[in-house]
Write a protein that binds this DNA or RNA. Structure first.
Length: 297
DNA sequence: GGCCAGGACTCAA
DNA sequence: TTGAGTCATGGC
């Protein structure tokens, strides 16, 4: 596909591009995309190919413009569809929401809100590790330093856009290189471990999917040092598109359960009990609960 | 200044 | 298998 062409995608309804933009622009300094009033721009990488795209919405159809670079239409379509979860049918989830008296308001208030994922598993896992046990603002600062130093840069109309650093590149770094960006010793070590696992083909999205069930996929991820239960579940939710994951113990989720249900969840059983009715859709419920912690801008 | 943040690891019991 | 200690840093 050459520059200038447009790909038109038809999201499964209900879908709200405004909700996607809200999520992408929720006052956090995410260096992986840039949000404009009616559109979003980002880099898509496929091996050595890096392209800059722009997505906007026109009467329930998404228009994807290739602003710079060259990549085939199928790859771009697959990426955007996975990124914005465009082919997900939310109706069964909304049927479950309707039956919950404390949460049913979300069906209307967040109508068409689909998960904004992180299709690149390597990026997702590095992000998990970066964000472990620190506040989000600082986590985004760390990510920006890493991406601006090691990511592929595309200049367009005076702005710089970045692809996430390749695992092969990070695999060759040492602890000190990451320490200098203010990653802790442990996080530096974990990130190098993951980068090397990807570079040596011991870890990939395909290998995780080959495990079969969501539980086996989680087990596989847990076998890598630095990926604990929270990160494994987060990666399955955001990158592998698993629909029934629950990041036990998550601080935000606990807040949301307290706020909506008056439940002070501590043990895994507490979480299971509070969210049991949403079995099969717990991933989406968690995203809606996280969503509820931030007011609509 | 103390507590918390989109945790994970190690080690003891 | 569970619990306490440790890591490290910015935000409030």
């Amino acid at each position: 596909m050459a520059g200038g062409n447009v790909i038109r995608l038809i999201p499964l309804q209900p879908y709200s591009f405004k909700q996607s933009l809200w999520f992408l622009d929720r006052n956090l300094d995410d260096c992986m995309h840039q949000v404009f009033p009616e559109s979003v721009r980002r880099v898509i990488s496929n091996g050595d190919q890096h392209v800059l795209i722009e997505i906007k919405s026109c009467q329930n159809i998404l228009e994807v413009n290739l602003l710079k670079g060259d990549l085939d239409q199928e790859t771009i379509t697959a990426f955007v569809t996975a990124w914005l979860d465009l082919d997900r049918d939310l109706k069964p989830f909304y049927q479950k929401l309707e039956k919950d008296k404390e949460l049913c308001y979300m069906r209307d208030q967040y109508r068409g809100f689909k998960i904004v994922g992180i299709p690149d598993l390597f990026e997702c896992l590095v992000w998990c590790i970066s964000g472990q046990q620190i506040n989000l603002d600082f986590a985004y600062t760390l990510k920006r330093r890493l991406v601006e130093k090691y990511g592929h840069k595309i200049n367009f109309m005076g702005e710089s856009y970045y692809g996430f650093p390749e695992p092969e590149l990070l695999a060759d770094l040492n602890i000190e290189a990451l320490r200098s960006l203010q990653f802790t010793n442990r996080k530096s070590e974990y990130i190098l471990t993951i980068a090397r696992a990807f570079a040596e083909k011991r870890l990939s999205s395909e290998l995780v999917k080959m495990q079969g069930t969501e539980e086996k996929m989680q087990e596989f991820l847990l076998s890598f040092k630095g990926i604990g239960p929270w990160s494994a579940n987060y990666a399955l939710m955001k990158s592998l598109r698993c629909m029934d994951r629950l990041p036990y113990g998550d601080a935000g989720l606990r807040q949301a359960l307290l706020k909506h249900k008056g439940v002070n969840a501590r043990s895994n059983q507490d979480f299971d009990q509070a969210l049991g009715a949403f079995k099969g859709w717990r991933t989406y419920l968690v995203f809606y609960l996280w969503r509820s912690l931030r007011e609509m801008a």
